[in-house]
Design a protein around this nucleic acid. Structure first.
Length: 472
RNA sequence: GCUCCCUUCGUCUAGCGGUCAGGACGCCGCCCUCUCAAGGCGGAAACACGAGUUCGAUUCUCGUAGGGAGCGCCA
């Protein structure tokens, strides 16, 4: 039998990093063995499910490149099937109608807690002779009273719980809509899911789900419960940790390659290897090797991976993602150097694509003015002669490439018996308005000949004005 | 309260009875250098605690402490 996994989010928000990692694990486990990866949308809670959330989840999956083979399958479109199964169970007593009021249930729970017991439904309606009038009943699954449920979790090992701890859970509401613990079982059974990989907040649900499988005469799948992801501070991930939605990472300037790599290493490892391409993940990842403990999300390590991928991925690939940020920041990429060239220069100077776009404005838009501090420090009278000489030399330079530009500046520095810094810094301020930029030859190259000469002219004018105001 | 689960540097992790407890991020120092980075080299930094088992425990067992999850007509 071929391996089949599924990712089954409920559309009540965006795709967060925990969900993304679960999806990645499901995807890898399926791809590793040539199996099938199914996407299912668990939208039975009509109050909280939204169309926008469905789209947000799909967008996140697509951006990460986690393509699925079947689906998306919507549970709301399978209500007939659930109703059919419930009828069958009702018919032979595997399930029964319960007319208990909320009040009675609440009291039951309070009393149990007060007595130091685990709250459980007491089976009051299990064998009712006749149905009370005028009450729309819920349907409860008749859980076994005896024995225990045990399963071998692929990450947690053997987990057992006594049936005495479990109670008869509600599988359908008064209006007939089914509930989660029931629909997952029917779906995973119908879709022949062989491996259920999900968050460990479901561990406690698993035994009761196994009981439903058995009641339905189906063999339960294998389970793998992956630990949750914590925020940087070790506390549960929440809004206040900033970027928790996958698409927020796109907006913040991360490459999907980096996020995927970061996520796969959270709770899983392969010796000392830190960098994994998707292909390597598919080859090496095994859900059985995943750790049991929750791990904290560490943004600085994600940054490091992002830097790594910006430097090592083909510039054309990085440029694709960078183009989105140019658009986002209102920079017209057609007004300056090719994005691949920009990436080649800027990749090892920033942590994110967002920063790369921000710090590259100067290569695509006119230079309005010099930064006051930088100009004060570097555009001084002493810089006049070197900049003047440089302007002339560059004007005559045909080959506007880094190597030739570097040669031109170095030879000039030598001739004028000046250190590189004496020329490069004033030039840098002239070209970019600031004291920080890529190496000077690359900066000239990206700014382009025409703009470079114009900006040096601006700087010379600035210095001239300064001299005029402050004659020695 | 009850049930289930977790515990190696600050963080992510390697380890599968005998290791100077390894790697990575971050941090610190040095080198390189036209700025800022990147890069190179080096450094500080961990087995939660207590009992067992054993010639020997980070590793196996049991407790303790701490943490998490669940106990819904939410998924």
């Amino acid at each position: 039998m071929t391996l089949r996994t599924r990712f089954a989010p409920s559309p009540t928000g965006f795709l967060h990093v925990g969900g993304a990692r679960t999806a990645l694990f499901c995807y890898l486990e399926a791809r590793h063995s040539g199996g099938t990866f199914v996407l299912r949308i668990e939208d039975t809670d009509r109050e909280r499910s939204t169309e926008a959330s469905v789209q947000a989840i799909l967008d996140g999956m697509q951006w990460l490149g986690l393509d699925w083979d079947e689906g998306p399958i919507y549970q709301t479109q399978r209500f007939d099937r659930y109703a059919e199964v419930i009828e069958e169970m009702l018919a032979d007593g595997r399930a029964y109608h319960c007319y208990c009021s909320r009040e009675r249930l609440d009291k039951l729970r309070e009393d149990a807690m007060a007595a130091g017991l685990k709250p459980r439904y007491d089976g009051h309606c299990r064998d009712l002779k006749e149905a009370p009038e005028g009450i729309a009943p819920v349907v409860r699954f008749r859980n076994p009273d005896e024995g225990e449920v045990s399963f071998d979790d692929r990450v947690r090992g053997t987990i057992s719980i006594s049936n005495a701890e479990l109670d008869d859970l509600v599988i359908a509401r008064p209006d007939g809509t089914p509930t989660y613990n029931f629909t997952v079982v029917v779906d995973d059974m119908d879709m022949n899911i062989s491996d259920v990989i999900r968050g460990d907040d479901h561990i406690n649900n698993t035994p009761r789900q196994i009981n439903i499988y058995r009641a339905l005469g189906a063999e339960p799948p294998r389970f793998a419960h992956v630990p949750m992801i914590l925020g940087d501070d070790g506390a549960r991930l929440s809004k206040r940790h900033g970027a928790v939605g996958v698409m927020q990472y796109r907006d913040d300037g991360y490459l999907p390659e980096a996020l995927l790599n970061y996520l796969v290493r959270l709770g899983w490892s392969h010796g000392d290897q830190e960098v994994f391409s998707l292909a390597e993940m598919v080859e090496l990842f095994r859900i059985d090797d995943v750790n049991r403990k929750a791990s904290a999300f560490n943004t600085s390590k994600l940054d490091w991976l992002n830097e790594h991928y910006m430097k090592s991925l083909p510039p054309e690939r990085v440029a694709q993602e960078l183009a989105w940020h140019f658009k986002d920041q209102g920079i017209n990429a057609a007004e300056g150097p090719a994005l691949e060239d920009l990436v080649a220069v800027q990749a090892d100077r920033v942590s994110t694509l967002k920063q790369m776009a921000e710090q590259s404005r100067v290569f695509y838009q006119p230079l309005e003015q010099f930064d006051a501090d930088a100009a004060k420090k570097h555009l001084r009278p002493v810089a006049q002669a070197p900049l003047q000489a440089l302007a002339e030399r560059l004007d005559g330079l045909e080959d506007w490439q880094p190597e030739a530009l570097d040669g031109a500046i170095r030879s000039l520095a030598e001739e004028m018996e000046l250190g590189m810094g004496k020329i490069a810094q004033p030039l840098r301020v002239a070209l970019t308005g600031t004291a920080v930029s890529p190496s000077i030859d690359k900066t000239l190259w990206l700014v382009g000949k025409e703009q470079s000469l114009q900006r040096i002219g601006m700087a010379l004018a600035f210095i001239a004005e300064r001299i005029a105001e402050n004659p020695a």
